[in-house]
Amino acid sequence: MDPRKNEDAEFAYGSGHINPLQAVNPGLVYDASAQDYITFLCAQGYNTTTLRQVTGDNSTCNGISLGKAWNLNYPSFALSVPDGGYATGSFYRTVTNVGSPNSTYNAIVFSPANLTISVVPSTLTFSQVGEKKSFVVKVNGGRLFQQPIMSACITWFDGKHTVRSPLVVYTTILPFDMDTDATALSSLGRPNLAHKKKGRIGGN
C-alpha cells in the first residue's frame, strides 16, 4: 500500500508488510519492560486499585504523575493536536541493538512540507549486542485547523537493517465549553459566542 494513494496514510498500513525472513533479524528493537507499561497506565489515569486489576500483583502508581500517551517506548509516533493548536511535540525513545555487534545507524526522515521533523542524535553507534541508545524525535509545525492526517516516517539504516517507524500528525476537536473557550475563539479571530451561552442560538 502506498501513502500517496491512500488518504488514511499511516493509519491504513502501519509499518508495512511483514517479511518473515527479516523479522527474525530486525537490527534494532524498541524494548518496553513491564515497568514501562505500569508507568504508562498510571500516567493515563489509572490508580493503584485499577492498576492491580491489570497487573495482578502489588504494583502501585505512587510517584507517577499524569503524562502523554506517546511517552511509552513504542516503535511508532502519533501526535494529536487540538484543533487550532500548534503541531509541536517531542518523543523520547530507546532502542536496543540485536543486530551486528559493531554497527552505526543513521536516521532517515520523510515528512510533508508543512512539518519539520528532526532526530537527535541522528546517528547511533553500537559496540555490542544488547547495547541501548536513546534519541528524541522533535516535531514542529504551524497551527492546524481540522487538518487531515499528515503522514511521515523515521527509518534507522546501517547498510543492512532497515528499522522503520511511522509517524502521524492529526487534529482532534475537543468538546466546546462556552464558559472557558469563547475567549480563546475570539482571540483566533472567530465570532465570540459568550453572549449566547444562556440564550438560544439565533434567538433574541
Rank of each mutant, 00 (worst) to 15 (best):
P3C: 02
R4Y: 09
A9L: 09
S15Q: 11
I18L: 15
I18G: 02
N19R: 13
V24R: 13
V24E: 09
N25S: 14
N25Q: 12
G27R: 13
V29C: 01
V29D: 00
V29F: 07
D31Y: 15
D31N: 14
A32F: 08
A32R: 10
S33D: 08
A34C: 01
D36V: 06
I38E: 01
A43K: 14
Q44Y: 02
Q44A: 11
G45I: 07
N47R: 06
N47F: 06
N47A: 06
T49D: 10
L51K: 10
V54S: 08
T55I: 07
G56D: 04
N58L: 07
T60R: 03
N62T: 15
I64W: 06
I64Y: 04
S65P: 00
S65A: 15
L66Q: 10
L66F: 07
G67R: 03
A69T: 03
W70L: 01
N71H: 10
N71S: 12
L72N: 01
Y74H: 06
Y74W: 10
F77V: 09
L79G: 00
V81G: 00
G85S: 11
G85C: 03
G89S: 01
S90D: 12
S90W: 02
F91R: 06
R93S: 09
V95Q: 06
T96M: 13
T96V: 14
V98R: 09
G99R: 13
P101N: 05
T104V: 14
Y105F: 15
Y105K: 11
N106H: 15
N106C: 02
F110Q: 12
F110K: 11
F110I: 11
P112M: 08
A113S: 15
A113Q: 15
T116E: 06
T116S: 14
V120L: 12
V120G: 02
P121N: 04
P121G: 03
T123M: 05
T125A: 12
S127Q: 12
S127I: 09
Q128N: 12
V129T: 13
E131G: 07
K132W: 04
K132I: 02
K132P: 01
K133Y: 02
K133D: 00
S134N: 03
V136F: 05
V137I: 15
K138N: 15
G142D: 06
G142F: 06
G142A: 08
G142S: 11
R143W: 02
L144P: 02
F145M: 06
Q146L: 09
P148W: 01
P148H: 00
I149N: 03
M150Y: 04
M150R: 11
C153V: 02
C153L: 09
I154H: 05
T155R: 13
G159P: 10
H161F: 14
T162Q: 11
V163F: 05
R164N: 13
R164F: 03
P166F: 08
L167N: 09
Y170T: 12
T172H: 11
I173K: 12
I173H: 09
P175K: 07
P175L: 08
F176H: 12
F176M: 08
F176A: 07
D177A: 08
D179Y: 14
D179M: 08
T183D: 05
A184S: 10
A184V: 10
S187I: 02
L188E: 03
G189F: 03
R190H: 11
R190M: 14
P191S: 05
N192D: 15
A194F: 11
A194H: 10
H195V: 09
H195L: 03
K197L: 05
K197E: 06
R200I: 10
G203L: 07
G203T: 10
